[in-house]
Design a protein around this nucleic acid. Structure first.
Lengths: 192, 192
DNA sequence: CTCATCATGTAAATTGTTACATGATTCA
DNA sequence: TGAATCATGTAACAATTTACATGATGAG
């Protein structure tokens, strides 16, 4: 259900074609809400039938077309309402901690590999988050600058600070996962 | 896909009826892999047709029945294979950080409430994890003691330590979420 | 005899994943 | 002219959520 709000968050900055949206998506909100193209295009169509966005068919070259979407008033309202509404927390479903709890059933080699992969996974996430934080600090994030361009002066600091806040939370989470898995490796050394 | 391995993890300790399993589940693995009863019962049936477990119909009182499941050799192998296999990380889908990134679009009151709820949510999770850690330390967790009863001596320490390790990771994650949201509240104070 | 808890689901809808499919345009 | 990238999906399946449904047993 959050997918549409993730999409609205991007579209609210300005009209975009499905393709451009999808690209912006993967570089920005996609960090907190992944969705493949095959989910984005149909969702845009559904949002259109629900009246949250409107699409305009544009020609491109001789025969090509693309559909450029913009947020309607109803879409804007829906987004703001979502921002005011209590967030529903979905229940935990954490394969890594599930496996960690039963690591005595794995061979030491598999246990070690699991932890090393965990570290690698979160290091790569951390790299992305830190990259985003740099872009935010430099105002070199394209979505953020586009957003700031349409933001009243008194909201600019807030816009930047909340984005930084969100990514700092993600980066810290990544660091904690890495430290945890490192402790796991030490534990392995002790136990075998 | 991890659900069946979460269920296997419990059943491997010893035979259980669907109902007992479901109860044990919510008190143990359920902390890392939530599933409602309406998913557990059908999944058990599917696991049975896949040959991972076998169920025996037992009478209960006059007319009542219950189905007691145990893990087959194939189920045991499947679990161990899963433990050896690389874990596939599903992509992030994090509504809280998604919302945090756009908090400038919420009213200050809603932003504050969002963060306070976030703290409350993770404090309650933390309480559960800390409770589990106490049970692990005291060996007063029923699933763990049942498991230890069927565990060879040389594996007992590992069994305990990995369980502790898993729950410490969860607890730390909860603490990080709480600290993050607290910083968010301070940020709100600064910005408005 | 009534209430908690034992016991087991079905049905419908939504969401998400994976794999495949197709054609246009632009730039080197 | 061939590769990159623009552009938009469909189809099939798997997983998850939500809501509903039903009856038995045991303890007080």
């Amino acid at each position: 259900m959050s997918l549409r709000f993730a999409l609205l968050a991007i579209l609210r900055v300005g009209p975009l074609s499905g393709y451009d949206l999808q690209k912006q998506f993967h570089q920005s909100v996609g960090h907190v809400w992944h969705a493949p193209d095959s989910q984005i295009y149909p969702e845009l169509r559904k949002m259109e039938t629900d009246g949250l966005i409107e699409g305009e068919e544009q020609t491109r070259g001789e025969r090509g077309t693309r559909r450029v979407y913009h947020v309607t008033d109803a879409g804007e309202r829906a987004f703001l309402e979502w921002m005011e509404s209590p967030l529903d927390y979905q229940r935990v479903r954490d394969p890594a901690h599930l496996r960690a709890a039963y690591l005595e059933s794995a061979t030491p080699a598999a246990a070690r590999e699991f932890l090393e992969r965990h570290i690698a996974h979160w290091e790569s996430e951390l790299e992305q988050f830190d990259g985003e934080l740099t872009h935010i600090a430099n105002l070199s994030n394209p979505m953020l600058t586009r957003r700031l361009a349409v933001t009243p002066d008194e909201d600019r600091e807030r816009t930047i600070e909340f984005k930084r806040f969100a990514y700092e939370g993600l980066a810290e989470r990544a660091r904690v996962e890495i430290e945890w898995a490192r402790r796991g490796l030490e534990l392995l050394d002790r136990l075998y």
